[in-house]
Design a protein around this nucleic acid. Structure first.
Length: 203
DNA sequence: AATGCGATTCTCT
DNA sequence: GAGAATCGCATTT
């Protein structure tokens, strides 16, 4: 198990987003480790990107975490109901982040299932098992990520990203980002990346 | 398979 | 007060 260090995150959002595919998110809750493999991400580059909350260098209470050091969590609420997890990228005062859009659950599925559905994992239908973590709002529910985790240091002991011991090869596909129709020319940027063929990639 | 819509509340102007 | 980096369900094709 190799935990990603601060320097790993001090990278351009597009490069880092691709580097994060295949890595694993780990979160320790009540002594239990929940683990998910990152299979889908989107890059947001505030200075030039009309889809980004920090577009044009806009600093607000919500966006300020993205202006700090890389490797911290940016968690925001969306549509009044869901949270989305991002990893802050790049350098101080360059507001970039990677939206974690989907993970493949590897460990702690029973606990994830209770957070997400309040049902036991072995009672889930096939579709519900896929839907456990196949979207940005879904994975936050499964990992119990809320506003409390905004600003959390991912170079820490109980919430971090690591390189798995072994991993099959995979192909990276790219596409336009999801649900940013308001973003004018930026909506056509190919800044969504995912692992080809993985069933947990969002639809 | 594709499309449409309601839920629900934070954030910013 | 408007709109949002989503989701789940209903309806239509």
């Amino acid at each position: 198990m190799h935990k990603l260090d601060r320097n790993f995150y001090k990278s351009d959002a597009i490069l880092l987003s691709k580097d994060l595919l295949g890595k694993c998110i780990a979160r320790k809750i009540n002594g239990e480790l929940l683990i998910g493999r990152i299979v889908e991400v989107e890059a947001y580059k505030g200075l030039i990107d009309k889809a980004a909350h920090s577009y044009g260098g806009k600093i607000t209470e919500r966006t300020k975490i993205m202006y700090g050091e890389a490797g911290y969590a940016y968690v925001y609420m969306i549509y009044g109901m869901y949270y989305c997890l991002n990893v802050v990228a790049s350098e101080v005062n360059v507001p970039e982040a990677i939206l974690i859009r989907a993970v493949e659950p590897l460990q702690g599925m029973e606990t994830m299932s209770m957070f997400r559905y309040n049902k036991h994992y072995d009672e889930l239908k096939k579709r519900e098992k896929i839907n456990l973590t196949s979207g940005p709002g879904k994975l936050c529910k499964a990992f119990n990520i809320t506003k409390k985790e905004n600003g959390y240091d991912l170079c820490s002991e109980d919430f971090y990203i690591f390189t798995p011991e072994s991993s099959d090869n995979f192909n990276i596909k790219e596409s336009k980002r999801i649900n940013i129709d308001y973003a004018e020319e930026a909506k056509d940027f190919l800044w969504r990346f995912y692992i080809e063929g993985n069933p947990y990639v969002s639809k």
